[in-house]
Amino acid sequence: VTVHVNRYTYHFDNPEEAEKFAREMAKRLNMTVEIHGNTLKVE
């Protein structure tokens, strides 16, 4: 599972951890999480 935050890319083996990380980053940056299959984008 890949998480994109701005120009950074993070890889996770565990989808739940990836989503938790993405949501935490989105909250911190006041952004939203978009899910595209195995890719989560924080925008």
Score class of each variant (00 low, 15 high):
Leu29Ala: 04
Thr39Ile: 14
Ile35Met: 09
Arg28Glu: 07
Val1Arg: 05
Lys20Cys: 14
Thr39Ala: 09
Arg23Pro: 00
Phe12Gln: 00
Val5Phe: 10
Ala22Trp: 02
Glu34His: 15
Glu24Leu: 12
Arg7Ile: 08
Met25Trp: 12
Asp13His: 07
Glu24Ile: 11
Val33Ile: 09
Tyr10Ser: 01
Val33Asp: 01
Val3Glu: 01
Asn6Tyr: 13
His36Glu: 10
Thr2Asp: 08
Asn30Pro: 01
Glu24Arg: 12
His4Ala: 05
Asn38Arg: 05
Glu43Cys: 15
Tyr8Thr: 12
Phe21Gln: 00
Ala22Cys: 05
Glu34Asp: 06
Asn38Trp: 03
Met31Lys: 04
His4Glu: 10
Glu34Ala: 14
Ala18Glu: 00
Tyr10Phe: 12
His11Ile: 10
Glu19Tyr: 15
Thr32Gln: 10
Arg28Asp: 05
His11Arg: 06
Val42Ser: 04
Val5Gly: 03
Ala26Arg: 04
Asn30Gln: 07
Glu16Lys: 11
His4Ile: 15
Thr9Lys: 10
Val1Lys: 04
Val33Trp: 05
Ala26Leu: 03
Leu29Pro: 05
Leu40Tyr: 10
Pro15Thr: 10
Ala18Gly: 10
Thr2Trp: 13
Asn6Lys: 08
Glu43Met: 15
Arg23Tyr: 13
His11Pro: 02
Met25Lys: 02
Glu16Val: 12
Pro15Gly: 07
Pro15Ser: 11
Val42Trp: 03
Met25Asn: 02
Glu24Phe: 12
Ala18Asn: 00
Glu24Met: 14
Val33Leu: 08
Ala26Gln: 03
Ile35Tyr: 13
Arg7Cys: 14
Thr9Ser: 08
Ala18Leu: 02
Ile35Gly: 05
Ala22Gln: 01
Glu43Tyr: 15
Ala18Val: 01
Glu16Phe: 11
Thr32Ile: 14
Val42His: 04
Arg23Gln: 09
Phe12Thr: 00
Glu16Asn: 08
His36Asp: 12
Lys41Gly: 05
Ala18Arg: 00
Val42Gln: 03
Lys20Phe: 09
Val3Ala: 02
Val3Asp: 01
Phe21Pro: 00
Thr32Asp: 05
Ala22His: 01
Asn30Ser: 07
Glu43Arg: 14
Glu43Ser: 14
Ala26Ile: 02
Val33Met: 05
His4Trp: 07
Val3Met: 01
Tyr10Gly: 00
Ala26Phe: 02
Val1Leu: 07
Thr9Asn: 05
Thr39Lys: 08
Val42Tyr: 03
Val42Phe: 03
Val33His: 01
Asp13Gln: 10
Ile35Pro: 03
Ala22Val: 03
Glu16Leu: 11
Val1Cys: 14
Glu34Met: 14
Asn30Cys: 13
Tyr8Ser: 09
Asn38Ala: 07
Asn30Asp: 06
Leu40Pro: 04
Glu16Cys: 11
Thr32Lys: 13
Asp13Tyr: 07
Leu29Trp: 08
Ile35Asp: 03
Thr32Ala: 08
Lys27Trp: 08
Thr2Leu: 09
Tyr8Lys: 14
Lys27Gln: 12
Pro15Phe: 15
His4Asn: 05
Arg28Val: 08
Glu34Gln: 15
Met25Ser: 03
Glu17His: 07
Glu43Asn: 12
Val5Trp: 07
Val3Trp: 00
Val3His: 01
Asn14Pro: 00
Lys41Val: 15
Asn6Gly: 15
Val5Arg: 02
Asn30Phe: 05
Tyr8Leu: 13
Asn38His: 07
Arg23Ala: 08
Met31Val: 09
Pro15Lys: 14
Thr9Val: 14
Glu19Phe: 15
Glu34Lys: 15
Lys27Asn: 11
Val1Ser: 06
Leu40Val: 13
Lys41His: 14
Glu16Met: 11
Ala26His: 02
Phe12Trp: 02
Lys41Ala: 07
Lys41Asn: 10
Arg23Leu: 09
Glu43Phe: 15
Asn38Glu: 05
Glu17Trp: 05
Lys27His: 11
Val33Glu: 01
Tyr8Gln: 13
Thr2Val: 12
Glu24Pro: 00
Glu34Pro: 01
Gly37Val: 06
Val3Ile: 03
Ala18Ser: 01
Thr9Pro: 04
Val42Cys: 08
Pro15Arg: 15
Asp13Gly: 06
His11Gly: 02
Ala18Thr: 00
Glu24Gln: 11
Leu40Glu: 04
His11Ala: 05
Thr2Tyr: 11
Gly37Ala: 05
Glu24Tyr: 14
Glu19Asp: 07
Val3Ser: 01
Tyr8Asp: 10
Asn6Cys: 15
Phe12Ser: 00
Thr39Asp: 09
Ala22Pro: 00
Glu17Gln: 09
Val33Phe: 05
His36Gly: 04
Glu24Ser: 10
Lys41Thr: 14
Met31Gln: 04
Met31His: 05
His36Met: 11
Lys41Glu: 06
Val42Glu: 04
Thr9Ile: 14
His4Pro: 01
Ala18Phe: 02
Glu16Arg: 10
Ala26Val: 02
Arg7Gly: 15
Leu29Glu: 04
Val33Asn: 01
Arg23Ser: 06
Pro15Ala: 13
Val1Glu: 01
Ala26Pro: 01
Leu29Thr: 04
Glu16Ile: 12
Thr2Phe: 11
Ala22Thr: 02
Glu43Val: 15
Lys20His: 09
Thr39Arg: 08
Tyr10Met: 03
Lys27Leu: 13
Glu43Asp: 11
His4Val: 14
Val1His: 08
Ile35Leu: 06
Glu19Lys: 09
Phe12Gly: 00
Glu19Thr: 09
Leu40Cys: 06
Glu19Val: 11
Thr39Ser: 11
Lys41Phe: 15
Tyr8His: 13
Thr39Trp: 07
Arg7Lys: 13
Glu34Cys: 14
Thr32Asn: 08
Ile35Lys: 13
Thr39Tyr: 10
Val5His: 04
Asn14Asp: 14
Glu17Asp: 12
Phe12Pro: 00
Pro15Leu: 15
Lys27Ile: 12
His36Phe: 12
Asn38Ser: 08
Phe12Cys: 05
Glu34Asn: 14
Val5Ser: 02
Phe21Glu: 00
Asn14Ala: 06
Phe12Lys: 00
Val1Gly: 03
Thr32Phe: 08
Asn14Met: 06
Val42Met: 04
Arg23Ile: 08
Met31Gly: 15
Val1Tyr: 15
Glu19Gln: 10
His4Tyr: 08
Thr9Phe: 09
